[in-house]
Nucleic acid binder design. Structure first.
Length: 156
DNA sequence: GTATTGATCTTCT
DNA sequence: GAAGATCAATACA
């Protein structure tokens, strides 16, 4: 269950799509409902959902999940037992799900992916994390009260 | 509990 | 050559 996300827009200085296409971010400018995976700090993979029409360049970064299925495989990939740390952060999430650059550009509405609509939830907004530009936009969204988010108390 | 650092990819200066 | 949508290990208070 997705419990934490951040939004990135083309007119947003913190976004990879700011300033146009590069070899890395072409997926962001492609059709929506695809996965944009990029390498972060040379070490981690981070996964986004492309969520604007082709050519726009907007996406939502998946920052944290509450693991509900496949805990065993997540633990194998992460070499870690604590379920609250398995997917608490974009790099950890990608590692737990086994996402890499191979999955960049794949459709999320067919195998091996499946998105399931959840019930109504209470969401809190706060400032985004780990960025220096565009930090004033409160575009981080977290499930209220969840203990699986990467930072417990989003600052508004 | 906070602070610092190494990992070393991609983009930009 | 530097910085960045990060994490984990280590060093301190």
């Amino acid at each position: 269950m997705i419990v934490e996300t951040e939004a990135y827009a083309p007119d947003d200085p913190a976004s990879h799509s700011y300033g146009g296409r590069t070899r890395r971010n072409v997926t962001m400018f492609g059709p929506p409902a695809r996965l944009y995976v990029y390498r972060s700090y040379g070490v981690h993979w981070c996964a986004n959902v492309v969520c604007a029409e082709e050519g726009v360049g907007a996406a939502v970064l998946l920052r944290a999940l509450e693991p509900t299925h496949g805990l065993g495989r997540m633990r194998e990939r992460r070499r870690l037992d604590d379920p609250t740390l398995l997917c608490a952060g974009p790099g950890r999430l990608a590692q737990a799900l086994g996402l890499t650059g191979e999955h960049n550009g794949l459709r999320l509405d067919r195998a091996p992916f499946e998105l399931i609509r959840g019930g109504p939830v209470e969401v809190v907004a706060g400032t985004r994390i780990g960025i220096t530009r565009g930090a004033d936009r409160a575009w981080r969204y977290a499930l209220s009260g969840s203990s699986y988010v990467s930072r417990p108390r989003p600052r508004a």
